[in-house]
């Protein structure tokens, strides 16, 4: 565990909690892509199946449980409790265009052809593109609320910090996971446009490029 990894995890947690609190406090999920949140719930579910098979540390287990619980709570708020405020008309990204190719790729390119490993690989690939429905939705409506931009900032920051963590681990621990690194680079690149706007527009609600 290094400082980049820890701050990366905390950024991830911050993003998840920011979104959950925003929906809870405003009693509304307007501007939030339910499809992205469903994909993230699927990401956590398929990645953390190793909760049943291996124990790494108390930290590892608790964070996994928190991530899963929060992501399901978010999906529940969007599709059940505050369904009336969900902006489904603008959430029109075709998720099958992500899930099907990602599923195929995880069968073809993985560390080991076993069910758990393929599901883990699937989750890594899917996470790298799971934000696309949200970015697509923002590009359609042309604007995102300030709090939504904070959410996106922390989501992007999390993966960027993981990249630094992997460089650190490569040099100091000899650790290198090509699948995670390539997917992490793709994921971070998706946020670059957004990072630029977030910083130049004074971290307030801003229009994003189509």
């Amino acid at each position: 565990m290094n400082i980049f990894r820890l701050t990366g995890d905390l950024s991830h947690l911050a993003a998840i909690v920011i979104l959950l609190l925003k929906i809870w406090k405003t009693r509304s999920c307007a501007g939030i892509s339910g499809k992205s949140q469903l994909l993230f719930a699927l990401v956590f579910t398929t990645r953390y199946l190793d909760l049943f098979t291996s124990f790494i540390s108390l930290y590892n287990t608790s964070m996994k449980l928190i991530y899963i619980a929060c992501s399901y709570a978010t999906v529940y708020l969007i599709y059940m409790k505050f369904k009336a405020t969900y902006d489904g008309n603008h959430d029109t990204f075709r998720v099958e265009f992500l899930v099907v190719p990602v599923g195929g790729l995880s069968f073809l390119v993985n560390h080991d052809f076993s069910p758990l490993e393929i599901l883990w690989t699937f989750s890594i690939y899917l996470e790298s593109v799971a934000i696309l429905p949200q970015l697509f939705m923002i590009s359609k409506t042309g604007e995102a609320e300030t709090i939504t931009t904070h959410y996106l900032f922390f989501q992007g920051l999390y993966r960027a910090l993981y990249l630094v963590n992997w460089i650190w681990r490569f040099y100091f621990e000899g650790f290198f996971d090509l699948i995670a690194v390539v997917a992490g680079v793709v994921q971070t690149i998706l946020y670059c446009d957004f990072f630029y706007l977030y910083i130049t527009k004074g971290m307030s609600g801003c229009a994003l490029p189509a």
Binding site: S57, N60, H111, L116, E117, Y162
Partner: peptide, 10 residues
């Protein structure tokens, strides 16, 4: 090489 049963990252 990554040992598939020892994933400590989230």
């Amino acid at each position: 090489e990554v040992r598939v049963d020892e994933k400590d990252e989230l």
